[in-house]
Amino acid sequence: MKGQALIRSIEAEQIKSDLPDIYVGDTVRVGVRIREGEKERVQPYEGTVIAMRNGGINETITVRKIFQGVGVERVFLLHSPLVEGIKIIRRGKVRRAKLYYLRDRVGKATRVKQRFDRSL
């Protein structure tokens, strides 16, 4: 093995194989591992995927939600051990790869149309 093949074999040990197919526009629930002193628990974070970046071990998604009237965006490193799991709640129908236009919208206008041709 040489070069990139060698690097891919190192990354393969840590890449998760059980991730669902995620698309931009989907509503997802991400389980985030949180350590509080000695105890560890999983906190859910739910929102719309507005961007996906990179590939391989560095793949990330940006999830946006409105919390107490304030827009919150979190970037998750998909293959990180801190991401316990991802569940797709709703498939969205969008025509952009990046939904940054949702940042300028409030209320009803932030809704993404649902699509039914992709399984959850």
Binding site: G3, I7, I10, E11, Q14, I57, P81, L82
Partner: peptide
């Protein structure tokens, strides 16, 4: 060989260089 990243015990991504 090149660079990549791996996750440490705390779950943090560490940038690493692979050397043969």
């Amino acid at each position: 060989v090149g660079m990549t990243q791996i996750f440490d015990d705390a779950g943090k991504a560490v940038p690493v260089t692979v050397i043969q």
